[in-house]
Amino acid sequence: MALRFVKTAVLAAAIGLSAVMSMGAARAAEGEVHIPSAGFSFSSALGTYDRGELQRGFQIYKEVCSACHSMHLLSYRNLRDIGLSEAEVAAVAASVQIQDGPNDNGEMFERPGRASDRFRSPFANPAAARAANNGALPPDLSVITKARNGGADYIHALLIGYAEPPAGLTLAEGMHYNQYFPGHQIAMAPPLSQDGQLTFGDGTNATVDRMSRDVSAFLNWAAEPELETRRAMGVRVLIFLAILGGLTYAVKRKVWANVH
């Protein structure tokens, strides 16, 4: 009887393992490039965001990336979640001009932003974005870490992954060599190229690696603002279910006691 149990367990494990591996097959890295794990604070199952990273990351987005990349799914009021005060949020919003209207004359006009506004897009539409970027469309960054294999680890690897092309490879016009971009040729010039490129409000040393980590963390928050709440809830749910499971199993054993 024990042998049958062992046989069943081994079979179940074998099937289960092959099941999980083939189910994850659809998302397994199809390229051969291995994306190094960057060790973000939120990478582990119970990890949380580092508010300092998020705030510096937002500063980088605002000063560097927002020139070309929109984030139209975020609103300025969302920045309260990374630790900005109501006044700071209002200031950030008011620093941009948002299109509004039509007014009573039927015309569109510009006005300072408010907390409830969505992040301002640098271009009016994709065609304008392409025209300003040699035909390439800088993707919207609202969910970029969910839209790429490797998530924040990939974004970070990409940002610090620019290099000289290997011997024998000629780059297409306007392209740059990147070790992690699929196909290795990316239209975006390295956006974080110099240490000290910008000055952080909290005094942290702005090395390229630090800036890349911060903006990658920020982008992960932008894609998954509910992450910390979700994991905390998950812990409570699993503990509850474990207790309930124990109780239910005990009841089952009691009810079945005179049958076995």
Partner: peptide, 17 residues
């Protein structure tokens, strides 16, 4: 009675859930 108490606890837990 022990079984009934156990069932009561389990049932209440499930109801909370």
């Amino acid at each position: 009675t022990k079984r009934d108490f156990l069932k009561l606890v389990a049932g209440s837990f499930a109801a909370v859930g």
